[in-house]
Amino acid sequence: MPVIMDADRLGRSLTRIAHEILERNRSIERLALVGIRTRGDVLAKRLAGVLEQITRAPVRTGALDITLYRDDLMRHAVGPQPLVRRTEIPFSIDDQKILLVDDVLYTGRTIRAALDALIDFGRPKEIQLVVLVDRGHRELPIKADYVGKNVPTSLKETVTVRLTETDGADEVSVNQAQ
């Protein structure tokens, strides 16, 4: 399985994204990261760590589970029903700039669900989207503000993101689906 990002490359991408976030938003005041479970929340925590290193100020993070907002609940388009997990956003998102973080941007349906879920928690000033990999094939008008790596893929391929915290290693690979 061809590896397209190793640990080193992944780390440097996160550092670049952190600088891009600071360049665009000027400061991290009223800025918070919300990751989509289960790997987006891990990436959000890491990105927050990088931002904290650069700015020497604390950055808030939350985790969002979008299972109950999916549009394929009765359709089983993508394999078995995922386990519903807890959403944990321990701060008010009202008037905050929220950076929504996910591992792979594909059809855009997960992000659509995440936007709906997020808006149920309040009215953020702005939502920006951070993804580690953009693999194309959008089905909704959604675009990422910060991208780790653009990877042209075919529909037959799957993109697998593995992270140390959840999978024991940092690695992104593209595989042929059976």
Binding site: D65, T67, L68, Y69, L73, L83, V84, R85, R86, T87, E88, D116, A117, D120, F121, G122
Partner: peptide, 18 residues
Amino acid sequence: TAEAMREIGERPIKKVPA
């Protein structure tokens, strides 16, 4: 699953579209 559901009852908008 009930653990995750309980959190919904603590939100300002206690409703999901599932």
